[in-house]
Amino acid sequence: MERFIVKRALASLISLAFLVVAVFFLSRLTGDPTDLYLPLDASLESRAQFRALHGLDQPLMVQFVDYLKDLAVLDFGESIRRAQPALDVVVSAFQWTLQLALITIAIVAVAAIVFGSLAAFNVGKIFDRFATFFSLVGSSVPEFWVAIVAIVVFSVQLGWFPTSGTGTALHWVLPVAILFIRPFGLIVQVVRSSMINALSSAYVKTAKAKGVKAKTIIFVHALRNALLPVITVIGDQAAGMLNGAVVVETIFGFPGVGKLMIDSILQRDFTVVIAAVVVTAFAIFIMNLIIDLLYALLDPRIRY
């Protein structure tokens, strides 16, 4: 088990190292922050002082070496826009995204496993057709369109929910509901397909012949053997949310890392962009490691 974990960790760290290098050079392609933060008529002296203050007066490779040295001690520098440590800015925003992702994926996982399992147990019946139809629709509709329609209907016309912010529980309802739709549709389809295979196996037929209750057959005998592909999809969807639910966070004014990253790119706040990418990538690395451990717990063959 330890060797398995070490191998997966090393593979993820190599990917993270490549990502760090790519983000540094790609962020520089957005332009010079001096042109954005100083007036057009700023003097050459003021521009030179600004560039020196933020380390932009050095050759690109010198900046890269300095960046790696600072990164080694988790020093991401100071945000140009906010005059605060970039890591503090990102961690503050990431907490909101993490809460949003965990709440949504927990609800999605429970609901999708129940619906998908029941659909598989009732293949071809009304419930199966109902679950299949709505899961296909949910996995196909664009989030930005649903979010806008939800705001118009539930916030503007009915006045049930606020349009933006995070002040109360009502502020969370629409963002969670919109993020729920697509993962739910995808996971229901995977659960249904995997459970159909599990329910057709010999041990399930034996359990039915012995008169075991349907609930026990579905959620005890068949579900564990059907969970491996389901966990993969749940992990992918959770990682996608951690990567920043950019559309939902932007539309609902949610102060998460996705919205922060978009704003920082537009503001050429390089330190925040890099810190956001590194923190998000590290969180996804941890999540993937947890998924790998779940694989090993569910299927002993993976440990060897």
Rank of each mutant, 00 (worst) to 15 (best):
M1I: 10
E2A: 13
F4K: 12
A11E: 13
A11M: 09
A17N: 09
V21E: 04
F25N: 06
G31R: 00
P33C: 02
Y37I: 04
Y37L: 09
S43P: 15
R47G: 04
A48E: 15
R51P: 02
G55F: 03
L60K: 05
V62R: 11
V65Q: 08
D70V: 11
L74E: 13
Q84D: 15
P85H: 07
A93S: 14
I103H: 01
I103W: 07
A111F: 06
A120T: 03
T132K: 00
F133A: 12
L136G: 13
L136Y: 11
G138Q: 09
S139H: 09
S139C: 10
P142V: 08
F144V: 03
I151R: 02
V153R: 06
W172D: 04
P175W: 02
I178V: 11
L179K: 07
R182M: 11
G185F: 07
I187Q: 10
V188D: 02
V191Q: 03
R192D: 08
S193H: 05
A198L: 06
Y203H: 14
V204K: 13
K205T: 14
K208W: 03
K210S: 07
G211R: 07
K213S: 12
R224I: 15
T232Y: 11
Q237W: 07
G240R: 06
I262R: 00
L266A: 12
T271G: 10
I274E: 08
A276V: 09
V277Q: 05
F282W: 10
I284R: 08
I286H: 13
M287Q: 07
L289R: 09
I291N: 14
I291Q: 15
D292N: 10
D299A: 00
R303C: 00
R303Q: 08
Y304W: 07
